[in-house]
């Protein structure tokens, strides 16, 4: 008799545990309008707001006069663990005739970058920052090697 009692109580317990689970899924099915968590990515592009700290890509900030703050000190190049940044410097001749090291080309290999933020931390003049773009897929890998300083840009006055 004890065996039968256990047998039927097992069945009862089993059915109860199963119906509990089914109640939850049914609840979600009934409330699916409210509960859904899907984001319709390409459609919500307009409303998609990324946090300001999101790290998508390194950019060199230029102001309205097409001037940047990079002195070409290569601190970022040294800080980068992957060799993502390559800085080519040149010598500017100031009006007084003094030679001064300046940035010629800021080469950035996006395909090597891991967005670790170490270059931004290392920069003494806050010339570079992380942009919030994240759609980086291209068909040609060479397109990911970018030149960050705009053509004709020069260093802002007073930045040492």
């Amino acid at each position: 008799m004890a065996f039968l009692k256990k047998y039927f109580s097992n069945i009862f317990q089993a059915i109860r545990s199963l119906t509990t689970g089914m109640r939850i899924t049914a609840g979600y099915a009934l409330r699916h309008g409210k509960e859904k968590i899907t984001q319709q990515y390409p459609d919500n592009k307009k409303t998609l707001v990324l946090p300001e700290r999101f790290r998508g890509e390194v950019v060199l900030t230029h102001d309205e006069n097409n001037e940047h703050a990079c002195t070409g000190c290569t601190a970022c190049e040294l800080a980068c663990p992957n060799g993502t940044i390559k800085i080519i410097t040149k010598f500017d001749v100031s009006p007084e005739g003094k030679k001064k090291k300046a940035l010629d080309t800021f080469i950035y290999h996006l395909e090597l970058c891991t967005m670790c933020n170490l270059c931004i931390e290392a920069c003494p003049t806050n010339a570079i920052r992380m942009a919030q773009t994240f759609e980086h897929s291209v068909f040609d890998r060479n397109k990911l090697t970018k030149k960050l300083n705009n053509p004709g840009s020069k260093i802002r006055e007073g930045v040492e």
Partner: peptide, 20 residues
Amino acid sequence: EETCGARLTMNYMVPGGVMY
């Protein structure tokens, strides 16, 4: 994402503290 700037590989810890 809001605090560290990334969702999976945050790199938020630096020797001596945290990044921001």
